[in-house]
């Protein structure tokens, strides 16, 4: 049996996925990327092997993707996260669709056609607006743990509007709202709403929509808000944060490249 590994070295977390020849997910892990991408990739790979329920052989083909893809010394190949996300998303959802991936440092909109070919993509501008970094910064300002955002937003009783685009301006706007006595739950829902708006500014978002990425994985309520806004069901794969790594592993399985021991 051959095994295929996808390593997605993102700006905030590094993901590893191992699949077998039948494209079954065999093991996976998520670790912090930190400042040493090479070490993070190694750690993620190691942990993904440890997470596997069965023992695998030592033969792996590795494909690296993500921001730090070139730092993965044991990878046989690299591919951009855009291709890998499209591939991973189509694997779970084999129809024409638009993928919204909200990552730690950027967000992407990727269009895939009926045969799984990527027909276009957009990445957000060089700014944190609408990304995980934006949520982190705001959580920090509001003295809320990042893991609590979802529950708090869910409990908000009314909607408030955040008008600013930029993270810094948003933080100032929040100060005004705090002074007005608006509850933190509502502020957070307002922040989620701002993430939705950023995505709507990037693309008309027609047709089927899939959402992936770490922000989606930890904040299912955000997906619900997207659904309300777009008035349609949104598909989220079982391991949304691993979509890029799964795509990478799938590409590794297609390539007839060499293997690493």
């Amino acid at each position: 049996m051959n095994y295929f590994v996808g390593i997605d070295v993102g700006a905030s977390t590094t993901k590893a996925v191992i699949i077998d020849e039948k494209k079954e997910i065999f093991g996976y892990s998520v670790v912090n990327s930190g400042a040493d991408f090479k070490a993070a990739a190694e750690e993620a790979f190691k942990k993904s092997r440890e997470s596997a329920k069965r023992k695998a052989s030592n033969k792996y083909s590795v494909l690296a993707t993500g921001y730090g893809r070139r730092n993965v010394s044991f990878a046989n190949q690299t591919k951009t996260e855009i291709s890998c996300h499209a591939q991973g998303s189509f694997f779970h959802f084999p129809h024409a669709h638009t993928l919204i991936d909200i990552g730690g440092q950027d967000s992407k909109i990727i269009k895939v056609n009926d045969s799984g070919k990527r027909i276009g993509f957009k990445m957000n501008r060089k700014c944190a607006a609408g990304t995980g970094a934006f949520l982190e910064e705001i959580a920090n300002r509001l003295r809320v743990k990042i893991g609590e955002l979802n529950e708090l937003a869910k409990k908000a009783e009314r909607n408030i509007q955040i008008g600013s685009y930029c993270t810094v301006f948003t933080a100032t706007e929040l100060l005004t709202k705090i002074r007005e006595g608006i509850d933190v739950k509502e502020l957070i829902k307002g922040i989620f709403d701002s993430v939705v708006k950023r995505a709507l500014e990037m693309d008309p978002l027609d047709g089927n929509i899939v959402m992936t990425g770490g922000v989606v994985a930890y904040n299912p309520f955000l997906v619900k808000m997207f659904e309300e806004k777009l008035d349609r069901e949104i598909f989220v794969p079982p391991l949304p944060q691993l979509t890029g790594a799964i795509g990478a592993a799938l590409y590794a399985s297609e390539a007839k490249g060499d293997q690493n021991a």
């Binding site: 921001y67 591919k79 951009t80 996260e81 855009i82 990527r118 993509f121 990445m123």
Partner: peptide, 10 residues
């Protein structure tokens, strides 16, 4: 560079 590379992959 990532954008360009992804474009070429496309």
């Amino acid at each position: 560079k990532t954008n360009i590379e992804a474009f070429i992959e496309q």
